[in-house]
Write a protein that binds this DNA or RNA. Structure first.
Lengths: 144, 144
DNA sequence: TATTTATAATTGATATATCAAATATATGAA
DNA sequence: TTCATATATTTGATATATCAATTATAAATA
């Protein structure tokens, strides 16, 4: 009925938005007042505390200005604490607080469960194929 | 900088954002100051002028409140004009202005070209498969 | 060293996202 | 008709997205 080329991006958009909503709801059962992106930032900083704000921005595919404001908010919420890095006073050291770590621990299994539900009945091969096609699109868009 | 382990949702997110950026750039070569979503709204209203704001919101997968503000802006930019509908004074008739129609005409081939580039080297079957997988995910998320 | 250039982060302006509450109008039931 | 409920839209508050401009510091170079 529909022509895929005309609706693929619509479906992609719909999927990502639906997943965000779904995640948010499940998050809220365990932890108050955290978004999917904030959780992702906590994760990155926990794994690699040396990251700069700009590096994180790139990792989570956001603008530096957005990151500034998100980090600021996360500091205000006491998920993170921030101090100037003496070796380079333009940058900050950003650390998870104990509250931040606690949140991360609570959310990790929720994420796993979210993915499990999202991908129920879908084989690894099918997901790999999905990634492959999306990466082709990405390559097309970046190399023209 | 090293590339982090990517999840499917990360790739989906990255794809949609990259496509939005790509579209925006190509739009700006032809028309000033219009976003992908605004173009989509013009398209829907051109095809189905009887749509209410809430119906459009659902079609473009946005909140009613966002739609109010977007329509407002598009009226301010003279893409649209709006008048109260006498049969139901809660609703509006929203029409494209000649400027709105002109923009739509200019952008239609750009969209086609954008898709062509995005999907270069990808078969219809592959795209259909992509849709299929995404729809499975959507069904999973909506039925749990 | 002094000056230029680059980098990290912030700020300002404007648009959009989201949720809750409010407003206006329509519809249905008592 | 009158009251309760539903619907369409708006508004307010707060967060995020985007672009351009600014600030502070570091690095490069004349």
């Amino acid at each position: 009925m529909e022509i895929p080329a005309k609706t693929v991006f619509y479906t992609i958009e719909r999927t990502i938005k639906t997943y965000r909503r779904f995640s948010k709801q499940n998050f809220s059962k365990v932890v108050n007042d955290i978004t999917v992106d904030q959780k992702l930032i906590l994760q990155y900083l926990n794994d690699r505390p040396e990251l700069s704000q700009n590096e994180i921005a790139e990792l989570v595919f956001k603008d530096n200005a957005s990151l500034t404001r998100m980090i600021e908010l996360m500091v205000r919420k006491r998920f993170l604490k921030r101090s100037i890095r003496p070796e380079d006073r333009r940058r900050f050291n950003i650390e998870l607080t104990s509250k931040g770590k606690e949140i991360l621990e609570k959310l990790t299994p929720v994420i796993a469960e979210n993915r499990k539900r999202a991908f129920a009945g879908i084989t690894e091969e099918e997901l790999a194929q999905l990634q492959l096609t999306l990466n082709k699109i990405l390559t097309n868009l970046n190399h023209t």
